[in-house]
Nucleic acid binder design. Structure first.
Lengths: 201, 201
DNA sequence: ATTTTATTTGACTATCCAGTCAATTACTTT
DNA sequence: AAAGTAATTGACTGGATAGTCAAATAAAAT
């Protein structure tokens, strides 16, 4: 089994953090290695390239965060409450990162995705995959809410995509404005969109 | 007046196109110069830095596109029709660019903004400014629609921001999926959000 | 204890990058 | 025609970049 090491884990975590906080292009392999306290040779022992690292880092991050989403969207919880809790979760996470880094960071999947969608097909696909996994949670909540007669929605799948688009757009605006206040509108907008609360009033 | 030249214009246009199509980080000054058929020395005769060029390029692009928006949101046109036409305009533009470049490019302001919001404050501000200018058109349409009693909306300004978030999110998803089909939902979603059309049905 | 396997080390390469500069050119103004 | 002004040229710098490699090392398996 050779020599045990946590260098790979370190690199994955540091890479995710740095890329989310800055951008893929702005973060160098040297910088990642330095912050992870790993030599460059080790980096290329674990990863064939910078983009491979990015893909693995994002997948790993998902793996770590998935239990939290499973908890939020637990079938034990009423579907509309699931959505409310998710909105709050998204906001909390942004607040937390903003506090840590001094500015609003937005959605990590969307950031990597927009930056590289037109340049690196593998990263585009990974980014799409991660977005899709998020949408599936929303879809399941909408389906259950419909089944229980809590909301009237024709196409929960399309609805989930719409909702997620809006959330992505708000995160994007929060980042561009560097203003967490934008996210105060998140929950009411989401609940309004699915007809669970009055948008107009 | 010295020696007349269209090099500056060329650089601005080429830079906007390349950055939109790829990303700020992926496009080099050399590449911009080459495609604009301008020497590097000339580049730095006109622009103090790459980021200054980007800011000017985006401002210039807005200047060129503004008349089109003024036409779409002309007070001569009923407000809800303004919004429909705007949605169609956004889709058309994406189709056009996708055809030209072979992939969906998304919103240029959002792309530059997300990539650099956390790194270059001046670019973040410019990006925010451009987004705000767009939102103002939507807001004016919503205000007029409300005044005419066409829709019931409490806060047209907040509504405009919500609508724009959704559009940004959809453009982002279209880019990440490299799929123009995502935008088929754009107009119905926007009209549904403002209560001008049934979302549920 | 020895072999095997996996990780570590850090110097190295070749390329690319943003930005500089001094000399030259071409146009406008007087 | 001369002077003034602005654009052009392209070679140059210094530093950063992704990625390489062969030798050293440490743990696990035998």
């Amino acid at each position: 089994m050779g020599r045990p090491s946590d260098a790979k884990e370190k690199l994955l975590q540091v890479a995710f953090d740095l890329i989310w906080n800055q951008s893929y292009g702005a973060v160098s392999v040297d910088q990642i290695c330095e912050q992870a306290r790993v030599n460059k040779g080790s980096f290329y022992h674990f990863f064939p390239s910078k983009s491979d690292l990015a893909i693995e880092a994002y997948e790993e991050h998902w793996r770590e965060k998935q239990p939290e989403l499973d908890r939020i969207f637990s079938p034990q919880i009423p579907p509309l409450e699931q959505l409310e809790r998710w909105c709050r979760h998204v906001c909390d996470r942004q607040r937390q990162k903003a506090k840590k880094y001094g500015h609003v960071c937005g959605c990590p999947y969307a950031s990597l995705g927009t930056e590289l969608a037109t340049q690196d097909e593998r990263i585009r696909l990974k980014s799409q995959e991660l977005v899709d996994r998020n949408i599936r949670y929303i879809e399941s909540a909408l389906l259950e809410a419909k089944r229980q007669g809590l909301i009237a929605i024709a196409d929960p799948q399309a609805g989930a995509r719409r909702v997620y688009s809006t959330v992505l757009g708000m995160l994007l605006q929060a980042k561009i404005r560097n203003d967490l206040g934008v996210l105060d509108e998140l929950e009411p907008t989401v609940m309004g969109m699915i007809g669970a609360r009055e948008l107009v009033a």
